[in-house]
């Protein structure tokens, strides 16, 4: 309980002429910065490398980015609500193993088993976060460890790589339609659906409201607990789906991929302009962020002399740049 005095609210409300323009530039940078950088990078890449701007390379980038993108959609919901989900990388791997394991019982089991398990764990995490008020970061950290353990347990301590034994399920990861694989189309569909959910429904607005100010959201009648639980459920389900699709693509439940994937996902979301403090951001930015990471990776491959780890350096630097820019924009807004 703090005693609030006028000083806390005493911001000067007058705006200098030209403020609106600065504000608009800030808004543009915040929401479409990743898209602009993506466009510039693509143009530079196309000029510099002949083999970059080919349909083949574009398809490669899109296909390899699609799994990250699916998880990033869920993560965007979580981060906008003011939380974070560190468990998605583990969820992704676990789902792959479960899907490959389940594929021997048919397509339906191969899909439902990972979705059920990952969804259930997401739900539990959501319940713990919403009900006990424990920090999302620590709850999902425990989720990360727990699911890694579960994955190892299912796969005989990682020694057993289940192979996918169902053609219909394999097709889900490998078949192409209009030159793009099925996961890409699924990603597009989910991004569209997620965008509508976030921007055009009461649920989506509730997510923004909770992330913006939980206290205000309660007073405005938002069912905070329910929305929070749903957000973690969505994140768990999408990470599970991405893992299952990846297993279908690789025809096996690989146990070594996906560690640390949560960091790439969070990086993509933050680069896309979604603030980790919650309450603002969106899926367009996230998609641009994911693609930007993919394009950078592709460019580094083109350069050849650089190892692929260079991509991490670039995305780390980029992430730092983005958060610093966001802070500066934030300060400029406060001072005005």
């Amino acid at each position: 309980m703090t005693t609030t005095t006028d000083a806390d609210t005493g911001t000067d409300t007058r705006r200098a002429p030209g403020m609106l323009r600065r504000e608009r530039i800030g808004h543009l940078l915040q929401h479409h910065g990743a898209l602009m950088v993506l466009a510039v990078t693509v143009v530079v890449g196309a000029v510099a490398f002949d083999s970059f701007a080919t349909p083949q390379n574009a398809a490669n980038i899109v296909v390899s980015s699609s799994f990250l993108a699916i998880i990033a959609i869920g993560m965007t919901f979580v981060i906008i609500s003011g939380g974070i989900d560190l468990s998605v990388g583990s969820s992704f791997v676990l789902a792959g193993v479960l899907a490959a394991y389940g594929s021997r019982y048919g397509l339906l089991v191969a899909l439902l088993l990972p979705l059920t398990v990952c969804g259930a764990i997401g739900l539990v995490q959501g319940l713990i976060v919403a009900r006990t008020g424990m920090a999302p970061f620590i709850v999902t950290l425990a989720g990360l460890l727990g699911m890694r353990g579960l994955m190892l347990a299912v796969s005989d301590e990682g020694a057993n790589t289940y192979l996918v034994r169902n053609d219909a399920f394999s097709a889900l990861g490998q078949a192409s339609f209009l030159g793009l694989t099925v996961p890409v189309w699924i990603t597009l569909g989910l991004a569209l659906l997620g965008g509508v959910l976030l921007q055009r429904t009461g649920f989506g607005q509730n997510v923004y409201a909770i992330g913006g100010s939980e206290e205000a959201a309660v007073l405005m009648g938002v069912p905070v607990t329910r929305v929070k639980v749903l957000v973690y459920l969505i994140s768990g389900l999408l990470a599970g789906l991405a893992g299952a699709l990846n297993a279908a693509r690789l025809s096996s439940g690989v146990t070594i991929l996906g560690a640390g994937m949560e960091l790439d996902v969070i990086a993509a979301v933050v680069i896309g302009g979604t603030l980790l403090t919650g309450g603002s951001g969106g899926l367009t930015g996230t998609m641009a962020g994911v693609l930007l990471l993919g394009v950078i990776q592709s460019l580094i491959n083109q350069i050849g002399v650089l190892t692929s780890s260079f991509q991490q350096v670039v995305s780390g630097a980029f992430l730092a740049l983005v958060v610093v820019t966001q802070r500066i924009l934030h300060r400029a807004q406060r001072l005005s």
Binding site: L263, D264, I266, A267, L306, T307, S309, F310, Q311, Q312, V313, V314, S315, G316, A317, L319, A320, V323
Partner: peptide, 15 residues
């Protein structure tokens, strides 16, 4: 802040 560092530094070490 430290997440950005984690990603970047791990990459740098690998490079």
């Amino acid at each position: 802040a430290t997440l950005a560092l984690l990603v970047g530094i791990r990459g740098m070490a690998n490079v």
